[in-house]
C-alpha cells in the first residue's frame, strides 16, 4: 500500500525538472493540495504558484505549482512545449494540479501523449491513496493484538491494560478501526 505523502514526495523528486501531476477530487481540495505540496517540498525548491505554462518554463530553478484556469489548454501547451524544459535544463519540476475527472485528464488521454508520457507514474491522487483498506487493517490488528479492535478496547477503556506507549499506540489504531 502506497502512503500518500511518500507517493507525492516521490513524484516531486523522481525527475529533476520533470512533470508531476497532482489529481484533486474538487476545486476546494485543490487549494488544500497546493498547500500540502508547499508544506512537503524542501525550502530550497522555492515553490511559486502560476496559471501559465510559459511562466512556469521561465523559472527553471524554482518549483512551479501550475494551477490552471483552463486545464485543457494548459495540458495542450505542456504537450507542445515540454521539451523547452530541457534547454536550459530545469532543476525543479513543474507540478500540475488537475481535477480527477476534469478536462485536463481527458486532454491527456485524448490529445497529449508527450505530456502524459513525461508524467507517467508521476501523477498522484493523494486523496485516493489516503483511503484505508479497513478490512486489511482490521485483520492486521487482530493478528497483532490477538483480538478485534472493539474487543481489545473493552479492557483498555476499563483501565485494565498497562498505560504503556505500545498500548497507547494500539488504542489509537483500534479507535480508528472501531465499528459502531
Amino acid at each position: 500500500m502506497r502512503e500518500p505523502g511518500v507517493a507525492l514526495a516521490g513524484a516531486l523528486a523522481r525527475d529533476e525538472g520533470g512533470l508531476t501531476i497532482v489529481t484533486c477530487p474538487d476545486l476546494d481540495l485543490r487549494d488544500w493540495l497546493v498547500k500540502e505540496v508547499e508544506s512537503l517540498v524542501p525550502t530550497g525548491a522555492a515553490p511559486f504558484r502560476t496559471t501559465s505554462v510559459a511562466e512556469a518554463l521561465r523559472e527553471p530553478n524554482r518549483m512551479a505549482l501550475l494551477i490552471p484556469s483552463d486545464e485543457a489548454e494548459v495540458v495542450r501547451d505542456l504537450d507542445a512545449c515540454r521539451d523547452q524544459a530541457l534547454d536550459p535544463p530545469r532543476t525543479q519540476p513543474i507540478v500540475l494540479f488537475l481535477l480527477r475527472h476534469g478536462d485536463g485528464h481527458r486532454t491527456l488521454a485524448t490529445e497529449a501523449p508527450s505530456a502524459w508520457s513525461w508524467a507517467s507514474g508521476n501523477d498522484v491522487d493523494p486523496e485516493e491513496l489516503a483511503e484505508l483498506d479497513v478490512d486489511a487493517e482490521r485483520a492486521a490488528f487482530t493478528d497483532e493484538a490477538g483480538a478485534p479492535p472493539e474487543d481489545w478496547l473493552v479492557p483498555w477503556r476499563a483501565g485494565q491494560l498497562p498505560r504503556s506507549q505500545e498500548n497507547y499506540t494500539r488504542a489509537f489504531w483500534a479507535m480508528t478501526l472501531e465499528q459502531p
Partner: peptide, 16 residues
C-alpha cells in the same frame, strides 16, 4: 523527507 512520512489515512464512508 520527514514531512512525507506523516501518513494520512481516511476511513472510507466515515468522517474519520
Amino acid at each position: 523527507d520527514a514531512p512525507a512520512r506523516l501518513v494520512e489515512g481516511r476511513v472510507p464512508r466515515s468522517d474519520t
